[in-house]
């Protein structure tokens, strides 16, 4: 069973800038990319610094891969898979995200895969 939860209107997300969201007690970082229009959702918790800051990182690309860099110590993560590109051992949890009727929705039960 998949449950999609509405988080915010798409317009609330500034293209190429992240925003944090609180979903069922979990802190999620949302990113809306200007070129592809895609929305990505990953952990807001930076696994390196243990601070909730990922949504405040800069988006960019590395060899074509869309990335976000931790604002704390600048490690880059693949926005699609959550994998850290500077340390293959580390990754962010990724949530399926979509836009419906101008609303950003996150698939919530996917969270259980984090456990």
């Amino acid at each position: 069973m998949t449950a999609w939860e509405r988080v915010c209107e798409l317009d609330a997300l500034v293209p190429d800038r992240g925003a944090a969201a609180l979903i069922g007690g979990h802190q999620v970082a949302l990113f809306r990319l200007s070129d592809t229009g895609e929305v990505h959702a990953v952990d807001h918790l930076d696994p390196f610094s243990q601070a909730n800051v990922m949504a405040r990182g800069l988006v960019g690309s590395r060899k074509g891969v869309p990335t976000v860099a931790s604002p704390m110590h600048k490690q880059s993560f693949d926005l699609r898979t959550g994998k850290c590109l500077d340390d293959p051992e580390v990754s962010l949890q990724v949530w399926p995200a979509r836009v419906t009727d101008g609303w950003v929705e996150i698939q919530v039960d996917a969270r259980s895969s984090a456990a």
Binding site: V7, C8, A12, L13, V14, R17, A19, A20, A21, L22, I23, G25, Q27, L30, L45, N52
Partner: peptide, 16 residues
């Protein structure tokens, strides 16, 4: 708007 802690809960402090 960029100072919202969470887009869906703009004034809720980081609970951690």
């Amino acid at each position: 708007l960029r100072f919202a802690s969470f887009v869906n809960a703009p004034e809720t402090p980081d609970p951690d």
